[in-house]
């Protein structure tokens, strides 16, 4: 049934990760409702969902920029992306 979607293991893992994150957010929301809003250094109020969105979108651009400006291998981009996630969840 899913043949037409041309699945690969790496892309499947990406979506497992993304949906896993959303599932985790849902779990946290049930435990502590309200989304844990706070004012970060961007000067905007962010909830957990906003921070996940910023993290993932930022990762996309970090990886694209690394690939476009430097090329392969992508380990450097991955390193920056991890730093970005830590930064977003601590400060934004």
């Amino acid at each position: 049934m899913l043949d037409w979607m041309a699945w690969t293991i790496p892309t499947a893992l990406v979506f497992v990760f993304v949906f896993g994150c959303i599932g985790l957010l849902a779990f946290l929301e049930v435990r502590t409702p309200g989304g844990d809003p706070r004012h970060g250094i961007l000067g905007i109020e962010t909830t957990r969902g906003d921070r996940l969105f910023i993290s993932i979108l930022g990762t996309v651009f970090i990886m694209l920029a690394w690939l476009g400006l430097y090329g392969t291998p992508l380990w450097g981009g991955l390193g920056i992306a991890i730093v970005w996630w830590v930064f977003v969840w601590k400060k934004v």
């Binding site: 037409w4 979607m5 699945w7 690969t8 690939l67």
Partner: peptide, 29 residues
């Protein structure tokens, strides 16, 4: 999701796909 799957593969039609990694992204960028 299907588009994401396509973006890392090469196809010659007939629903046959071959792994191409991040090559297309590199080409486009």
């Amino acid at each position: 999701m299907t588009v994401v799957n396509y973006s890392v593969q090469e196809t010659f039609g007939d629903n046959l796909f071959f792994w191409h990694g991040i090559g297309w992204f590199q080409d486009v960028l």
